[in-house]
């Protein structure tokens, strides 16, 4: 044990405190915040944990599978909602011209860096009992996590869509106006024209949603079997010291994000070949 390494509240080493004080004051356990990882085990423990993690992944461990499935379901739902809202908005923002358009675009681009814990906090306040949407009673359920992730990725999808449509609009606006297309028809036509590039936007949004931890932790609560997803489970299991499950989930998460990027890349190449 290395208790002596911990600092007393006064900032002095415990063993330097004089004997009289030590007698009068009970020795407090060291104050360690709950989120600090457990002491790092030696190297061979890592190896064992890794082997156990692989076994869990490839033998379909029930706990792990349930967590992965919930993660995918929550993120897929949030992406579906965010896409439906954000793509038409982003496209309209690219083709329409109205007063105050530039500030809106700048704000939207700034929202790309929206911190997920802040989104979590905002959604938490909205959904908590006393909040405006408290009557829904969905706080600490997967539905709340869907809402939080949708809020998080909507600006991302809208901003990326706006950028793509905006570039296409430069090349096509005269032709579309010549054909008599108004802003709405132009926005929809360009969304369709860019459909393959937009798949990569959706995948980028999915990658962001499935890998974020702050928002789902706050509004979901990381309840075992109910709202525990990959990222919150990794955070918890790591701090508990259950490395196999954390590592196993980490591997799955990594594989998912990697697969998403491979699919996006292959799709781009295929479309380039077919459509020019």
């Amino acid at each position: 044990m290395h208790d002596s390494a911990y600092l007393a509240p006064e900032g002095r080493r415990l063993d330097s405190v004089n004997a009289g004080a030590r007698l009068r004051r009970p020795r407090l356990p060291p104050a360690v915040p709950a989120h600090v990882p457990a002491p790092v085990p030696p190297m061979n423990t890592f190896g064992l944990a890794f082997a156990e993690a692989l076994r869990m992944v490839f033998h379909g461990d029930a706990t792990l599978a349930a967590i992965v499935l919930l993660s995918l379901r929550v993120s897929a739902a949030s992406i579906a909602i965010a896409t439906l809202v954000a793509m038409p908005l982003g496209a309209l923002l690219a083709v329409a011209s109205f007063r105050g358009q530039r500030p809106v675009i700048v704000t939207l681009n700034a929202l790309l860096g929206l911190p997920s814990v802040v989104v979590g906090l905002a959604v938490y306040l909205l959904l908590s009992r006393a909040g405006p949407l408290g009557s829904l009673g969905i706080l600490f359920t997967p539905a709340a996590m869907v809402v939080a992730q949708a809020v998080l990725v909507t600006p991302l999808i809208a901003a990326l869509t706006r950028q793509l449509v905006s570039d296409a609009w430069v090349e096509t606006n005269e032709q579309l106006r010549s054909l008599g297309a108004g802003p709405l028809a132009s926005a929809l036509a360009l969304l369709f024209d860019l459909r393959y590039s937009l798949v990569t936007v959706v995948l980028a949004g999915f990658g962001r949603a499935v890998s974020e931890v702050g928002a789902v932790m706050i509004v979901g609560g990381n309840i075992d079997g109910v709202t525990r997803v990959m990222t919150t489970a990794i955070a918890l299991e790591t701090s508990k010291g259950d490395l196999p499950l954390a590592l196993g989930l980490g591997l799955v998460l990594l594989a998912i994000v990697l697969a998403i990027n491979v699919v996006a890349h292959l799709l781009r190449e295929a479309v380039q070949r077919r459509h020019g």
Partner: peptide, 25 residues
């Protein structure tokens, strides 16, 4: 109607480019 120096075509089939314009019309 107008035809431009650089033709502006959409990611559709040859036929689809025309039916799209007819739809807008």
């Amino acid at each position: 109607a107008m035809v431009f120096q650089r033709p502006v075509l959409f990611r559709r089939s040859v036929l689809g480019n025309i039916t799209f314009a007819l739809g807008l019309a």
